[in-house]
Amino acid sequence: MREAKRYEGYQEKKTNRTEFGKEFGWDGVAWCQIYQSVIVKRAYKRAGSSTPLADAKELIPWTASCSTAAKWFKTRDRFSQTPKVGSQVFYGPAGSTHVELVIEVGHDYIKTIGGNTAGNFDGRYHEGNGVYTKTINRNSSRIYGYGHPKYTAETNPITAPIYDAPKYPGKLLKLGGKSRFLTKFQKRMAQLGYTIIADGVFGPQTLGVVKAFQQRAGLPSDGVIGPQTWAAAWATK
């Protein structure tokens, strides 16, 4: 959700020409589903994943077609008529017309953000040429249904607050090592209440804290700071 809102107000340069289409590999076409696919990939990359595209493909369909995306969710038993924050809402026959991301659910409404859409930004209503938010009646006849990505507590690029994590250093941090990135991790552990010295040195004290934190986060307790442990440190409150 945070990743989606980073681009709120973005407008296509020419008809259907966007940075999202270029990254997806198919520019100049309707890009509402492309936007959904690319923001998840970017969210994983921002969270420190070394395989953001592969991770994105596990979570949501990597496609430019709304109807194909709706079918993808259905075949995995992740499609329903009940909205959830972080779900994709599909419109039109078989979900083929349009798609947006649900960012708020009320008793009789949903609030969404989407690409290649019309909506509100900066106090004005815009046509369907950018990334905007809108509020829609839950009983709207336009709504076909909702696709629900399979989130986990450790890797949730839509609803979990993992985007505030500093960029992952790109290599494993383990016993005996020294790194300025380790200092950041140690400071984060201190914020979470662990007794640790933020000196950038991976000694026995840091090893014990890392293992304890991994157990707390439901991760393998191997004492090595990899991308998942790094991201979970900033997702944990």
Rank of each mutant, 00 (worst) to 15 (best):
Lys14Ala: 10
Lys14Pro: 00
Lys22Met: 09
Gly25Trp: 05
Ala30Gln: 12
Cys32Met: 08
Ile34Pro: 01
Ile34Tyr: 11
Ser37Gly: 11
Val38Phe: 02
Val40Ala: 09
Glu58Tyr: 02
Trp62Glu: 09
Ser65His: 07
Ser65Thr: 13
Ala69His: 03
Thr75His: 11
Thr75Cys: 02
Asp77His: 12
Asp77Ile: 06
Arg78His: 12
Ser80Val: 12
Pro83Trp: 00
Val89Glu: 08
Gly92Ile: 04
Ala94Lys: 15
Thr97Met: 03
His98Tyr: 02
Glu100Ile: 10
Glu104Ile: 02
Glu104Val: 08
Gly106Val: 06
Asp108Lys: 12
Tyr109Gly: 06
Asn116Met: 03
Asp122Gly: 15
Arg124Thr: 13
Tyr125Cys: 01
Tyr125Gly: 07
Gly128Lys: 14
Asn129Leu: 11
Gly130Gln: 00
Val131Trp: 06
Thr135Ile: 11
Ile136Gln: 13
Gly145Cys: 01
Tyr151Ile: 06
Thr159Met: 07
Asp164Pro: 03
Pro169Phe: 12
Pro169Ile: 14
Leu173Cys: 08
Lys174Met: 09
Leu175Met: 14
Gly177Trp: 00
Lys178Thr: 14
Ser179Gln: 03
Ser179Gly: 04
Arg180Gly: 12
Gln186Asp: 05
Met189Glu: 07
Gly200Asn: 00
Val201Pro: 02
Thr206Ala: 06
Leu207Ser: 11
Val209Tyr: 05
Val209Arg: 00
Gln215Thr: 14
Gly218Ala: 06
Leu219Asp: 05
Pro220Asp: 11
Gly223Gln: 05
Ala231Gly: 05
Ala231Cys: 09
Ala233Asn: 08
Trp234Thr: 12
